[in-house]
Amino acid sequence: MAGIDKAREFEYTLDDFNFLRKISNRHSGILVPDDKFDMFYSRLSKRVRRLGFNRFAEYCQYLQDHPEQEFTEFINAVTTNLTSFFREMHHFEFVAQTLLPELLKKNQAQKQIRVWSAGCSTGEEPYSLAMTLLENVPRDWDIKILATDLDTNVLAVAAEGVYPLDRVATIGEQRLRDWFQKGSGSQNHKVRIKSPVRQLIHFKQLNLMQDWPMKGGFDFIFCRNVLIYFDRETKQRLANRYAGLLRAGGYLFIGHSESLHQLDTPFTLLGNTIYQYEKNRI
């Protein structure tokens, strides 16, 4: 057992960390490396304090004995959520300049576009997608965006669609006028996503490791900076599950530090971490 750090508010050992990361991995599939030892302490200290414990071992026991009450709080605390509007801008440029013109021809009969933002965090990604679609798709088309995340706290923020002004500092003036409403009075330091954008998105809690209720038919899927947390086998399984929900020729967007290289999937790399689904490849 690791020694106790006297400088910490709560007793916290390597045994505690190993117990907690094992539960996290079993539930979410996310690999937690050794260097996240301090991160787990800082993120869970608030829960330990609120529950009146002096040692993380007490929290581990409580989590084991009362999963219904505590498990969601635990997962929310240890999940990483880093995002911004129009992050990795080249993806949105590809959507606007290449993907949507293709879909406007391909889906002309039904005039329908379906998108999934998997791992949507606090909502900036799906809202950025919604703005891009509204700017480039005729108004009489039926657009729906599913936005999912494991963390219920970030989903609540996303569904509200309210952000501090500094979160939209890099967005152009035209987009700010078109899609954001500035707060007044006590809310003058915040903005809210306008209703036409919010109405396109359905936010839902989803664990990627469990069953997916969606039937598919997505034209493209954004799953960025999610695969990086999984082992090779899980990455391959997830990529193939995504393929199963895409229409033939659909697209998968992943994060800049991620790759499907050397994985057995029906995707072809187009460049810039953009992949296309080839139905008959496997």
Results as ranks from 00 to 15, higher is better:
Arg177Asn: 12
Ser121Tyr: 10
Pro101His: 02
Asn25Phe: 12
Ser45Trp: 01
Asn18Gly: 00
Asp166Arg: 13
Arg49Phe: 13
Asn25Val: 04
Thr273Trp: 07
Arg247Pro: 01
Pro196Ala: 05
Ala156Gly: 00
Lys194Pro: 12
Thr132Asp: 03
Lys144Ala: 15
Leu176Ile: 11
Tyr62Trp: 09
Arg8Gln: 05
Arg237Cys: 08
Asn107Ala: 05
Glu173Cys: 01
Arg177Phe: 04
Ser84Cys: 04
Thr132Tyr: 08
Ser184Trp: 11
Phe86Thr: 03
Phe86Arg: 00
Arg198Cys: 01
Tyr251Asn: 10
Leu269Cys: 10
Asn207Arg: 02
Leu103His: 02
Ile282Lys: 13
Met89Ala: 12
Gly217Met: 09
Arg55Phe: 03
Ile113Arg: 07
Glu258Asp: 06
Tyr277Pro: 11
Phe19Asp: 01
Asn107Ser: 07
Tyr251Met: 11
Asn136Gly: 03
Asp34His: 01
Gln174Cys: 00
Phe86Leu: 01
Leu155Pro: 09
Asp65Asn: 09
Gln276Glu: 08
Arg175Gly: 07
Trp116Val: 08
Phe86Trp: 02
Phe85Gly: 01
His66Leu: 01
Met131Tyr: 04
Lys182Thr: 14
Val78Asp: 04
Asn81Thr: 02
Leu155Val: 06
Gly183Cys: 06
Ser42Val: 09
Asn225Gln: 11
Thr79Ala: 06
Phe230Tyr: 15
Ile23Glu: 14
Thr80His: 11
Arg198Leu: 12
Arg26Val: 10
Gln199Ile: 00
Pro126Thr: 02
Gln64Asn: 08
Tyr229Cys: 07
Gly161Phe: 02
Phe40Ser: 10
Leu270Phe: 13
Asp35Gly: 03
His90Lys: 06
Gln236Met: 09
Ala239Tyr: 08
Ile228Val: 12
Phe86Tyr: 11
Leu146Lys: 07
Leu260Gln: 02
Glu278Asn: 15
Ser84Thr: 07
Gly123Gln: 04
Glu160Val: 00
Leu82Pro: 02
Cys223Val: 07
Ser259Glu: 09
Thr13Ala: 08
Ile254Asn: 10
Ile30Pro: 08
Ser84Phe: 07
Leu246Ala: 00
Arg21Gln: 14
Phe92Gly: 04
Thr13Phe: 09
Asn272Trp: 14
Leu14Ala: 11
Leu82Tyr: 12
Lys182Ser: 14
Arg43Val: 06
Tyr251Leu: 03
Ile228Gln: 05
Leu263Asp: 08
Phe85Glu: 01
Tyr62Arg: 15
Met89Ile: 14
Trp141Gln: 00
Lys235Thr: 07
Asp151Phe: 06
Met39Pro: 02
Pro138Ala: 01
Asp140Met: 06
Lys46Cys: 07
Gly217Cys: 10
Val95His: 04
Gln97Ser: 12
Asp149His: 06
Thr98Trp: 04
Gly29Trp: 05
Met209Trp: 07
Lys204Gln: 15
Ser195Val: 08
Gly123Asp: 00
Leu129Asp: 04
Asp178Ser: 15
Arg247Asp: 08
Ser42Arg: 12
Gln64Thr: 10
Phe92Arg: 06
Gly216Phe: 11
Glu233Met: 10
Phe86Ile: 03
Arg114Ile: 02
Tyr62Pro: 00
Ile221Leu: 10
His189Lys: 15
Leu263Glu: 08
His256Phe: 09
Asp15Phe: 14
Leu206Pro: 05
Ser259Met: 11
Met1Asp: 09
Thr152His: 00
Ile228Thr: 06
Gln61Lys: 15
Gln262Phe: 14
Phe74His: 06
Gln236Ile: 04
